[in-house]
């Protein structure tokens, strides 16, 4: 009896130790990745990289910076996040406020968002490319924004949907019983409740948009200057990193590390900001009535 019992507790301890180790390793991996990039990138970083665009022979080790790529990434991710917001918010409000609780259509649309969320960005890129050929568009900022919009829609919609589902049904009912139409309930009452959630989701989608490389590869083209119109090709930060790393020159590769450091910094601060907003802004939310 005693031996059996000992074995049981030994097994318990052993398994628990292994599992805890796995969880700790996860945090270790994150620290390892961030410090690797930070150590390699910080030493290669200098100010002129941040305030200049690529000059001739930039990828051969000559003068220049990556300002154009930083601005390009912001333009693409910013534009796409705005567009995605205007597409996904109405849909999410529709399936939550307009449809009944166990609506088949709502479930189907949620399912479609889940599936779209799992489609890799390279497929979005290829699809965007076929659309561009169909419409006669050239690789440009506009095409890049449109494709990233498609990538971001499911991310944003899933994020917002999760928050909307937590809005108590009583709030909707109260609004409706006061004589508000469904539209007024959705756009004037429910949306105020989920505003923090929307901002968090938008920041997360923005972060994804900035880091995406495979989808813009086909559609946004590549350039060495800051785009002046929607029809010009544009460089993005991930692609600049990728191309710089692909050169055989150590000095250019060093710049890739520095660019990667900047990208990591951007994405991490966006992610932390999203976390901050979701905590800060949800303080005044009504959860139960």
């Amino acid at each position: 009896m005693n031996i059996r019992k000992d074995r049981r507790f030994f097994e318990e301890k052993l398994i628990k130790g292994i599992m805890r180790f796995c969880a700790l390793l996860l945090a270790g991996l994150l620290i390892l990745i961030v410090t690797t990039i930070a150590v390699k990138g910080f030493s290669a970083l200098n100010l002129s990289m941040l305030v200049n665009t690529a000059k001739g022979g930039f990828y051969l080790g000559k003068e220049g910076g990556i300002l154009h790529a930083i601005i390009g990434s912001f333009c693409i991710a910013g534009g796409a996040t705005c567009l995605a917001f205007f597409i996904s918010t109405p849909i999410v409000l529709y399936i939550n406020v307009y449809r009944k609780k166990r609506s088949k259509l709502a479930e189907l649309i949620r399912f479609a968002f889940n599936v779209l969320w799992g489609i890799p960005s390279i497929v979005y890129g290829a699809f965007g490319f076929t659309c561009m050929l169909f419409l006669g568009l050239k690789a440009s900022l506009l095409a890049g924004i449109l494709v990233i919009t498609l990538v971001e829609i499911p991310i944003l919609a899933r994020g917002i949907d999760e928050v909307v589902q937590h809005v108590p049904i009583e709030i909707t009912q109260a609004a409706l019983s006061l004589g508000a139409t469904t539209g007024e309930t959705a756009w004037k009452v429910v949306i105020r409740q989920i505003l923090p959630g929307i901002i968090t989701a938008m920041l997360l989608a923005f972060g994804r948009g900035i880091g995406d490389a495979a989808a813009v590869l086909f559609t946004a083209g590549f350039s060495d200057y800051i785009p002046e119109s929607l029809m010009q090709p544009v460089a993005t930060l991930p692609l600049v990193i990728f191309f710089q790393l692909g050169t055989p020159f150590p000095s250019v590769q060093n710049r890739a590390y520095a660019s990667a450091f900047i990208l990591t910094l951007l994405v991490l601060s966006i992610s932390l900001m999203a976390r901050f907003f979701s905590k800060k802004l949800s303080r005044h939310r009504i959860d139960h009535m």
Partner: peptide
């Protein structure tokens, strides 16, 4: 750890590649 997971998931694939 949920935060760790979320942050890890938000890192762009180019950074993982590098």
């Amino acid at each position: 750890f949920k935060s760790v997971i979320d942050i890890l998931a938000s890192i762009p694939s180019v950074i993982f590649g590098l």
